[in-house]
Design a protein around this nucleic acid. Structure first.
Lengths: 283, 283
DNA sequence: ACACGATACCAATTTTTTATTCCTAATTTT
DNA sequence: AAAATTAGGAATAAAAAATTGGTATCGTGT
């Protein structure tokens, strides 16, 4: 669904007419696929050139390119396990809730993977692998994800900094420089604390990897590598369950990539596992 | 793959030049998708009109239509669950790793739900709902899950204790009594620290909810309500990714059950969300 | 073997579609 | 309020696709 996700993500930063095109496309994907730019323009009530410009603004070469990519994503998403639609309702019974939750998590996982470019993922992995030091952080719920990544990176023998206190974070960031990496996690991408730290680090020459929702936001602007989460968290009830699920998808994926790359990984990992085993027995 | 199948099926009943076009398309699906009829014609060494006729003979409106349908089938087949089975290998490429990871997470989610009895899940929810105080803990990676649950319970207005330091945990447990609940998370179910705390709490009359791997273990023996995770973590490489995924499945499920039950939940939750929003804007 | 119809194929042309350019109006910035 | 940037459309250029018309080729029946 990547193209549709992209359109949805950029919708809010679009102009009047562009939004109208976006809405129409989102509503009528199927019919758009078979229409020419002129026909679409007429239906929406804008000029043909606007449709072409809309396509180009989304990053496509032109309208044909958009259409191609649109059919591609539609075909892709049609192959995904059909999720039970509709939000989890207050009177759903346990089995239904469980089923819906699984379906939604699954959708978040799939869409998150599709929302990210292979290139950026691989580059991020390389960057982390060759980093001298890695500063991880996130605010609120994301801080747990940051901490999880930190544990994993430690297992790989990386030098890692995690810290909840934002003041300490800024202080830490100030000590970073060339060859160091900041991994910033923020669902919204607008949290000031995170931006401040990223800014501090970037200005010292450290690389910044961001993990945010799939939309333009201040954090991605700062980042050297932007990773994205897709979580269609329509209702408040679900808290940030899906956002977290999506974040972990990316961090887990990165971790696996790192393990694959780092030849010493398995050895070191095994050693640390043994150490824990010993501890467990002793205590 | 339907389009490619169709081409292959009709290939034999085609004329000389048409077969040449068919062969080229079958060999170079990817590049054809981006080519115009003229370009394709040149590559194959036939006229542009032949390419159009070829498309029409296959049942498409024209060349563009064929191209669209071609990308569609390619996308479809790319999405087909390829090598779902088998571990993630060191030389799997990114797409494969992602697919396998999703498949494994999905399996963990489903099996975890199936491993738990509805009754225990519902009882656990009720227990948490009516608890005076809730002490949460887990060791290592599980401690993050505990913390996540703590955040969510706080949003619901529950009185929660989370603590990493095991000594403090024991001290905390000692203060618990009738009406209090311990939520203990431990993948193995044998970690001494966890058991000690659970024991202390249980002896004071507090209820114990355990979340462990799906097997008999000391912790479930102690627990009033035993919840289980299923994570087929065959290889070391995956670290505790699947275990964590499974643990979150259960805690997320519990959280939703609680939200459903607690009428005040949405209101309180909304309030806390607003508070965070304000903070964000100020800072 | 030859004529007949059918099909294959291409070049040229027409039609359709797409992309660009250039201009105006609106909006934002200074 | 002036300047600069941006949104959007009309007109046009460019490109691509589809049709046409005609010749060559193939197969079939006589």
């Amino acid at each position: 669904m990547s193209t549709l996700v992209k359109i949805r993500a950029m919708r809010d930063s679009m102009s009047n007419h562009e939004q109208r095109i976006a809405d129409f496309v989102l509503e009528n994907v199927e019919s758009v696929r078979a229409q020419s730019s002129k026909a679409l323009a007429e239906q929406v009530g804008v000029s043909q050139s606007s449709v072409v410009k809309f396509s180009q603004k989304l990053g496509y070469k032109g309208y044909s390119d958009l259409k191609l990519s649109l059919t591609e994503s539609v075909a892709r998403s049609a192959m995904l396990p059909k999720a039970i639609h509709g939000d989890i309702a207050a009177d759903d019974d346990l089995a239904t809730v469980a089923q819906k939750l699984i379906a939604r998590k699954n959708l978040a996982l799939n869409e998150t993977v599709m929302a990210n470019s292979e290139k950026v993922l691989l580059q991020s992995a390389e960057t982390l692998l060759s980093a001298k030091r890695i500063l991880l952080f996130g605010v609120g719920a994301s801080s747990l994800v940051a901490r999880d990544v930190a544990y994993k990176l430690m297992k790989l023998g990386k030098s890692v900094l995690v810290e909840n206190d934002t003041h300490v974070q800024v202080a830490n960031a100030a000590t970073l420089g060339q060859g160091d990496v900041v991994f910033a996690i923020s669902e919204s991408g607008v949290t000031q604390d995170v931006i401040r730290v990223a800014q501090a680090a970037a200005s010292q020459g450290a690389e910044v990897i961001s993990l945010t929702r799939f939309a333009r936001n201040p954090l991605t602007e700062l980042a050297t590598h932007s990773l994205f989460c897709v979580a269609n968290e329509s209702e408040a009830r679900s808290s940030s369950i899906l956002a977290r699920t999506a974040q972990f998808m990316i961090t887990d994926l990165l971790f696996i990539l790192l393990s694959q790359r780092d030849e010493k990984a398995n050895e070191l990992f095994e050693r640390s596992r043994q150490a824990v085993k010993v501890l467990r027995r002793d205590s």
